[in-house]
């Protein structure tokens, strides 16, 4: 559900047309659409780089972790998940809210990683490193649109 669908659902719930605050919110969202698109394109183009560089920074701070255990299969799986989270952030930037991240990647996430034996504190650090590298690939306007979703991701771990 995007920001557009969300304000419509709110208005419908209250049986009314959109309020002027909601319309302003949508106007702001549409107004930086071009920046949203370029941010999403850059995240897509740099996913590999963000994951590789992010992993290096992460392992430097936290060497004893499943993705750095010497098992290439584990490393690949962890990095694949990290790439997925970058993709979900790119969806959020385009949707204007965190619903794609919440619905696809956060609902049930703790149970999954606990069951896999991946320490959540390590993942939190890994996500911080991903954010750092990702921010470096974006302009300040693009970064401002993407950062809240990385922050929500970090908080979730």
């Amino acid at each position: 559900m995007s920001i557009v669908a969300k304000v419509i659902a709110q208005s419908d719930e209250a049986n009314r047309f959109l309020s002027s605050a909601e319309l302003t919110k949508l106007q702001d969202f549409f107004g930086n659409g071009t920046t949203r698109i370029s941010a999403a394109q850059k995240l897509a183009a740099n996913e590999q780089k963000i994951v590789d560089e992010g992993s290096k920074r992460f392992w430097a701070k936290c060497p004893n972790t499943p993705s750095n255990s010497g098992n290439p299969q584990k490393t690949a799986l962890c990095q694949r998940d990290q790439g997925w989270y970058i993709r979900l952030v790119s969806y959020c930037v385009l949707a204007g809210n965190a619903k794609p991240l919440e619905d696809i990647g956060l609902d049930g996430m703790r149970d999954m990683y606990v069951s896999l034996g991946v320490p959540l504190t390590n993942l939190k650090l890994a996500m911080r490193c991903l954010k750092e590298v990702a921010m470096g690939t974006l302009s300040s306007e693009e970064g401002a649109l993407a950062a809240p979703y990385f922050d929500q991701l970090i908080r979730a771990f």
């Binding site: 559900m1 995007s2 557009v4 669908a5 419509i8 659902a9 698109i37 999403a40 394109q41 995240l43 897509a44 996913e47 997925w84 993709r87 790119s90 969806y91 385009l94 949707a95 204007g96 794609p100 696809i104």
Partner: peptide, 24 residues
């Protein structure tokens, strides 16, 4: 309900792909 944004995000996620080209 669907909207024009989620209508492109949902199928892209099914394929695990970023939004690109025609979708963007």
């Amino acid at each position: 309900m669907q909207d024009t944004i989620t209508a492109v995000i949902n199928p892209a996620d099914e394929k695990g792909s970023y939004l690109e080209g025609a979708e963007l």
